[in-house]
Simulated scan of single mutants.
Amino acid sequence: MAETQEATVVFGVLNETSETESRVALTPDIVTRLKRGGVASIIESGAGMAAEYTDEDYEKAGAKVTDRAAVLAEADALGFVDRPSAEIVASLKPGQWVIGMLGSFTDADYIAALEKAGLVGIGIEKLPRKLSSAQSMDEMTSQNSVMGYKAAITAADAYGSFLPMMTTAAGTIRPAKALVLGAGIAGLQAIGTLRRLGAVVTAYDVRPASQGEVESLGAKFLDLGLDFSKGQGEGGYARALTAEEQAQQQAAVDEKAAGFDIIITTAKVPGRKPPVLLTAAGVNGLHRGAVIVDCAASELGGNVEGSAVGEQVTEGGVKLIGAPYLASGVATTASNLLARNVADILVHFIRDGKLSQDLSEELDDALVVAGRAEEPAVKSE
């Protein structure tokens, strides 16, 4: 059995449960893992309940379960599912670390607020995904994988017929035809799940390399007759298309979409408005009872024209589901993965029992988005 080191860093997590959020940034097994590495955990009471983890589970693992004020006061670093609110930022002490998806690509004012408060901000969205040392820290990959799985389940639940072909004494039911737009982590998981449910799956992505990945899962690659040979962007993400390319893609997808029963869109561009992959004309061309699940829906819009968070039914009887919170719907698994991502980032910045930014590595330069303090706060016992 590995020897447990004396705790010198305290890691805190708050209860972020809401109407749309059931995940938690720390699970009991990660409490144990951190404890062995000399990190003590403190968590707000009730934080894990929506993900099926009780306060007793955390206490048995060795975490301190307490109220919010105590977590904020005692933690050297805090991990978040979402980023801390302005109210929480105002409650933190200079030198404390915050780890989460901080929105550093698009919200300079928020990062400036962290700087002004004297906090050290670790923005997971800036993780260099191609670094092998960063794979276990990649929250976007882990949570998008959960999202893709749940998108397929959501579509199957909303669709009014079977997904697999079924032959009965009363006749044969044809399999559902599904189209996945965006073959990144979420898209590939959606493809695999739809295939396992028995649907006939087709997919499309602007990245040329995605065709082989799609076909390896037993799906067809949608031929739009277009060539976006430079579809691969930096860091493993799909690049944003030019206006002309978007128009060409939209017209081609709109035309092809009419032959499908289920459409799932997953094309997010981090920090930017998602590209429209299916226009209103494409939606209107679908048959009554068809289902669309737009994983990119947000206040910025979605991959589907007219998409909004929540479910709506068009005049033509098409169900359009804007679903950005799908990972939260699989809270236990999503939390397990997320907690590991956040914990590995935390541990990466611990040297000689202290939080330190002085590692001089590519990963550090990318992740530290606020408060490059020379003396990060570490509790002294």
Rank of each mutant, 00 (worst) to 15 (best):
E6L: 05
A7T: 08
V9C: 09
T17V: 14
T27E: 12
G37C: 07
G38A: 05
G46C: 03
A47M: 00
G48R: 02
M49R: 11
E52M: 07
E52H: 12
T54P: 13
D57C: 06
E59H: 09
A77H: 02
L78R: 04
V81C: 09
D82Y: 11
P84F: 09
A86L: 06
A86E: 15
E87S: 14
L92V: 02
G100V: 03
D107N: 13
D109A: 12
D109M: 01
L114F: 09
G123N: 10
I124F: 15
E125F: 06
S133Y: 12
Q135W: 00
M137V: 02
Q143T: 06
V146Y: 09
M147L: 07
G148F: 10
T154I: 00
A156E: 03
Y159D: 01
G160A: 11
T168N: 09
A169T: 11
A178N: 08
V180Y: 02
G182V: 00
A186W: 11
A186P: 12
L194M: 09
R195N: 12
R196F: 06
L197R: 12
G198D: 10
V200G: 13
R207N: 10
A209M: 01
A209E: 11
Q211M: 05
G212D: 11
G212V: 03
G218F: 04
G218P: 13
L222H: 09
G225R: 11
Y237W: 03
A243H: 07
A257T: 08
A257L: 03
F260E: 04
I263Q: 07
T266F: 05
R272Y: 01
V283F: 10
N284S: 15
L286D: 00
A290C: 01
V291T: 07
V293M: 05
A296Y: 13
L300T: 15
G301Y: 04
E315M: 08
G316V: 05
G322V: 00
A323T: 04
A323G: 14
Y325E: 07
A327D: 03
S328H: 08
S328I: 04
G329V: 00
T332D: 01
T332N: 02
L346E: 06
V347R: 14
F349H: 14
R351E: 13
D358C: 00
L359I: 10
S360N: 15
E362Y: 02
D364L: 00
D365Q: 11
V368T: 13
V369T: 13
A370M: 02
E374Y: 05
E374D: 11
K379V: 06
